[in-house]
Amino acid sequence: MEKLIGVWIAAFLTLCIYSFLYRDNPFYRFAEHLFVGISVGYGIVLSIHQGLIPLAWTPFWQAITQWPPGWGLTKLIPIAIGLLFFARLIPNYAWLIRYPIAILMGIGSGLAIPNVMQADIFRQVHGTLVPFSQIHAGTLSGSEIFGAILMLIGVISTLTYFFFSVEHRGVVGGVSKVGIIFLMIGFGSAFGNTVMGRVSLLIQRVEFLLQDWLHLI
């Protein structure tokens, strides 16, 4: 029974949202606002149950219920820092919100430097250059060698296109034009993938309406 009600509600909301294709209307606005409310509520529940309770409340509770109090009491510090976010609601103390923001910015920036260097820069450079060692070892086919050279040209020319410290004239201008070609192919494939992703979702919704709701297929 609950599945039947769920399918009917889901079908109604799906049609409400698709009604926007005709024009803006009360059904669409209802579904849109409900979506915002439900999503925010979902986010709150997840952040409390997967963030605050296991990371802050449980260790804190364990610390105060045992004697002598344990390490969990230190959880009071981030909780107090987090509470400073609410200073935003009191105009005279609104500046206190800078403390949690500054700490989060510091942690985020400190994490980003080594991680981005390792996960993005070194890995990407490694992936671009490693095939050349295999060329030297003679383990790559002709098409793979072509792919490796094309990859290097693409990476260098794309980076040159985004390098604005020198004027894009002469050799630099030519290389950056090659970069545009690679970028356009990249954007085209990203666009194609996005379209196909959206179309897949559309097919899935139509399938839901015809199969699960109307039982036509």
Partner: peptide
């Protein structure tokens, strides 16, 4: 090939910007 190479270029540029 071409898509991955342009993405690598963009990722490298963005990463340097992030750092």
């Amino acid at each position: 090939n071409p898509n991955l190479s342009s993405r690598r270029g963009v990722i490298l540029g963005v990463s340097l910007g992030v750092i």
